[in-house]
């Protein structure tokens, strides 16, 4: 396993709790609406090739929330500032679910922030046929049921989701959920202007989706592909919303191929 450290990055007075580890060129990972799940197997594999920056978004986990930050475009502004603070530019990124929405907003806002972008089960674009599952109106246990096609094939499922949580962890989870509501309540989990703005993105982009994603339909991956010139879509069979947890080997392979 690659060693990682916990760092606090001060962005204009906002403290961002960041996991950092590995070596090589920088890679920014942006987590989904549920929060930062820590240094999992797939992240560790990425850290063997890259220096991974894995922050908890402002308002999540141990990171502060600046009063002004209330939308995903706000978050994109904030992350440009974060990258500037770290002296990073033109780096690789992977955004998971809501983090994919953040990554694509950053890319649409500032073409030179990233050199390569990977979006995994990303929200942000409204599907024409299906719907993005409403995660706020159901219980966290029901959300978890929707996340996986088959939890048994996710090697770290028990370690991450199957154990007893401390009261502190429960509070953090509740706080993360509240932050997701703040950011994504209406329009729910998408931005009507995003598809149009993505036309200006000119970096290599890959979408990765679980074929059986019950939260964000694969159709959204196709819409991203249509919106971003030259991008491709990799669909993983027998897999739900989180390929990086449910099918880590396949996820790592496609990620490393693309990022290389």
């Amino acid at each position: 396993m690659v060693a990682f450290t916990e760092e606090i990055v001060d962005v204009g007075g906002t403290k961002v709790h960041t996991l950092k580890g590995g070596s090589g060129e920088p890679l920014l990972l942006l987590h989904g609406a549920g929060g930062n799940n820590g240094w999992l197997k797939s992240i560790d594999a990425l850290a063997e090739k890259y220096t991974v920056y894995y922050p908890s978004h402002p308002g999540y986990g141990k990171s502060d929330r600046p009063d002004w930050l209330e939308t995903i475009p706000d978050m994109a502004c904030f992350y440009n500032w974060y990258l500037e603070t770290l002296g990073l530019e033109g780096i690789r990124t992977i955004g998971f679910s809501m983090g994919g929405w953040i990554a694509s907003e950053i890319a649409a806002m500032c073409n030179h922030s990233f050199s390569k972008m990977m979006l995994v089960g990303a929200v942000g674009i409204k599907p024409n046929e299906g719907e993005i599952a409403d995660l706020f109106i159901i219980s966290p246990a029901q959300v978890l049921d929707l996340m996986f096609h088959d939890p048994a094939q996710a090697p770290e499922y028990q370690a991450v989701y199957g154990r007893e949580f401390t009261p502190e962890e429960m509070m953090t989870a509740e706080g993360n959920r509240e932050m997701a509501v703040r950011l994504c309540w209406k329009p729910y989990m998408h931005d009507p202007r995003l598809s149009s703005l993505l036309q200006r993105v000119n970096m290599p982009t890959r979408m990765v989706w679980g074929r059986n994603d019950q939260i964000v339909p694969v159709e959204c991956g196709e819409l991203y592909k249509k919106a971003i010139r030259g991008s491709d879509l990799v669909v993983i069979d027998n897999c739900g919303h989180s390929p990086q947890v449910e099918k880590p080997d396949e996820f790592i392979k496609t990620a490393l191929d693309f990022l290389a």
Binding site: I137, E174, R177
Partner: peptide, 10 residues
């Protein structure tokens, strides 16, 4: 009714 109906997050 479900908890989320009565107490949406936040």
């Amino acid at each position: 009714g479900p908890r989320e109906y009565w107490a949406p997050p936040g």
